[in-house]
Amino acid sequence: MSALLTVTSLTKRFGSQPVLLNVSLELGSGQVLAVLGRSGGGKTTLLKILAGLEAPDDGQLYLLGQDLRPLPPNERQVVYLYQEPLLFPHLSVFENVAFGLRIRRVPEPEVQAQVTAMLAELDLLDHARKAPHQLSGGQRQRVAFGRALIIRPRLLLLDEPFGNLDAQTRADMQQLFLHVSRQHQISSIFVTHDSREALTVGSRFAYLEAGQLTSFAARADFVQDPRTGITSELAFWRSVEAQR
């Protein structure tokens, strides 16, 4: 399978502080790359460079064979989702989802049809006329998804999107993300510091620490790597089980 995204030798420094060091990765169409790492490891900078919000110092970025570096963020068709849903407070739920279509001057009947279908898919049709502050945390995150998905992004970048949700809502959102990713054949990079979340949403896996990215050929390799902490957590639960 030819790669959708190819990143080669990406380097970024803030002053004398290196943030990304020779980061290389490949992502195929429809894949979800789960990037695990602690805070300050360079995860957000990597996503911002891919989105065009930061410029790399060195390295190559190709999306479907197109050099991304000269393209401004609005021409990349790469959407960056923050930890906060960041719904526009002056717009209703419907208009939040319609935002990208309105920017692209999509005809009104088409906007109505596409947004209605998206809201139905995300189970938000009853909330279409509500203001963002009238929604729960999970509902807001679903609206943020809808707003991103409706413009059919070539690549979706998720920066710990469920970090502020409670455990149950977080689990629901992970399942919803998997469902819509498959439904819309979305390729994405999903950054998280939660190994369980990485294993749930990812189809490919990487670990980013101190600006250095390790890609794993198989899920088992990711699980076995001691830096991910998965083996030690498994050992902990086994010891709990053994004490029963």
Partner: peptide, 27 residues
């Protein structure tokens, strides 16, 4: 957070001027 709103609007397809007019100005 306002900077994040602006960045988000840019990745959703806004030029700098559109992000200012459609997002920053109403905020």
């Amino acid at each position: 957070q306002v900077a994040e709103y602006e960045s988000l609007a840019r990745t959703l397809g806004c030029t700098s001027a559109q992000a200012f007019r459609r997002v920053l100005l109403p905020l």
